[in-house]
C-alpha cells in the first residue's frame, strides 16, 4: 500500500515537472493567464499531496502494513 502512496507522490512529481516547465508554461505566458495557470496547478499538486498524506495516515492507523517493500 505504501508503494501506492509512493507512486502517487512520484506521479505528482512527474506531473509537476511537466506542468511547471517549458513548453507548457509558455502557452499561457504573458498575462493573467500564467498567474492562474501556475497557482492552479500548484494548488492541485498540494491537494494531491494532502490526499496522499491522509491516505497514508489512514492506512497506518488501520495497521494495514501489507506493502511489498
Amino acid at each position: 500500500m505504501i508503494l501506492e502512496g509512493r507512486s502517487i507522490a512520484l506521479i505528482i512529481f512527474a506531473a509537476s515537472l511537466l506542468f511547471f516547465n517549458w513548453p507548457l508554461v509558455s502557452i499561457a505566458d504573458g498575462g493573467l493567464g500564467i498567474i492562474l495557470y501556475l497557482f492552479f496547478f500548484w494548488a492541485i499538486a498540494i491537494a494531491g499531496l494532502r490526499h496522499n498524506c491522509r491516505r497514508e495516515k489512514k492506512i497506518q492507523e488501520n495497521g494495514n502494513e501489507g506493502d511489498d517493500r
Binding site: 507522490a9 509537476s16 515537472l17 500548484w42 499531496l49
Partner: peptide, 10 residues
C-alpha cells in the same frame, strides 16, 4: 521545492 517535496517520502 514543491516538486522536490513530492519525493520527500522517499
Amino acid at each position: 521545492p514543491t516538486i522536490m517535496i513530492c519525493l520527500w517520502w522517499i
